[in-house]
């Protein structure tokens, strides 16, 4: 367990360093990012200006679009992708629990959903800041935002469900089943900006500049490192708690 914590701390430091490096790269080396947005008229490129003075009108309000807004891309997208990925891992553990009926899989699945919820909240916060800066509104009910919001609600519902079942085995089974059904929203949310008209930009397209790609990948790896560290720390905590319970039982007996 001590080893687990050590590895987790190392991962947090490395992940933090990579993310910080990506942050600086996004300011000093990255070129102007072009985003494709799938609109009703077809595929259009949205150029995010680097000039601080560019102004835009949205919802009747004129506001200066800060060039800083575009830089949040290197944080927002890795965090969002990590939340999808970690939730997928949670669903895989849920399937494994249903097949093998081992308690450890249930614990892993739960911890993965917890980690994924942290990422989802981070995505929401960065996303809301970004929409405010680039669309002029805090929130818009557009396909990607809506399905992602639903994903967050589903994760919260997962814990509400867990808390309302007292029998341990039943709780694990219900949670696993719900996790699998809730996961179906992940591909929907991921694909939706590519399928229906939406104002949310689609980032990955052929022709993405290397200067953009490098900080993005660095941030992505950094995020996943931090995520895995959070997961491991929680697992270590869970282990310690279990051992404490066992010791307590022994003392009482």
């Amino acid at each position: 367990m001590k080893r687990q914590i050590q590895v987790a701390v190392v991962l947090i430091v490395l992940g933090g360093l990579l993310t910080t490096a990506a942050f600086f790269m996004s300011f000093y080396t990255a070129s102007v990012q072009r985003f494709g947005t799938y609109t009703a008229e077809g595929h259009v490129d949205t150029v995010f200006d680097i000039a601080p003075s560019s102004e835009q009108v949205a919802g009747g309000v004129t506001y200066g679009r800060p060039w800083l807004a575009q830089k949040i891309f290197y944080f927002h997208v890795p965090v969002a992708l990590a939340s999808f990925l970690v939730f997928t891992i949670a669903a895989i553990f849920a399937v494994m629990f249903l097949i093998k009926k081992k308690k450890s899989y249930d614990t892993r699945s739960r911890l993965a959903v917890e980690t994924s919820l942290i990422f989802t909240l981070a995505t929401m916060i960065t996303g809301i800041l970004w929409t405010r800066a680039s669309w002029g509104v805090w929130w818009e009910w557009e396909p990607r935002l809506t399905t992602y919001f639903i994903l967050m609600i589903l994760m919260v519902a997962y814990f509400v469900l867990r808390n309302s079942v007292s029998d341990e085995e039943r709780r694990a089974t219900y949670a696993a089943v719900f996790c699998i059904i809730a996961w179906i929203d992940v591909p929907i949310s991921f694909m939706i900006t590519r399928l229906i008209p939406s104002s949310h930009p689609v980032v990955f397209q052929p022709g993405m500049d290397v200067t953009n790609l490098v900080p993005f990948i660095a941030a992505m790896i950094g995020m996943l490192g931090v995520g895995y560290a959070v997961y491991m720390l929680r697992a270590a905590e869970e282990n310690a708690e279990e051992r404490l319970d066992m010791i307590r039982e022994k003392l009482e007996a």
């Binding site: 609600i153 589903l154 509400v160 469900l161 309302s164 079942v165 007292s166 219900y174 059904i181 809730a182």
Partner: peptide, 17 residues
């Protein structure tokens, strides 16, 4: 129906799904 908050839990699970 097997949980503590029957209809409330149904709403929490059913609507987002």
């Amino acid at each position: 129906v097997n949980t503590k908050g029957k209809d409330f839990i149904l709403a929490v699970l059913f609507i987002p799904i």
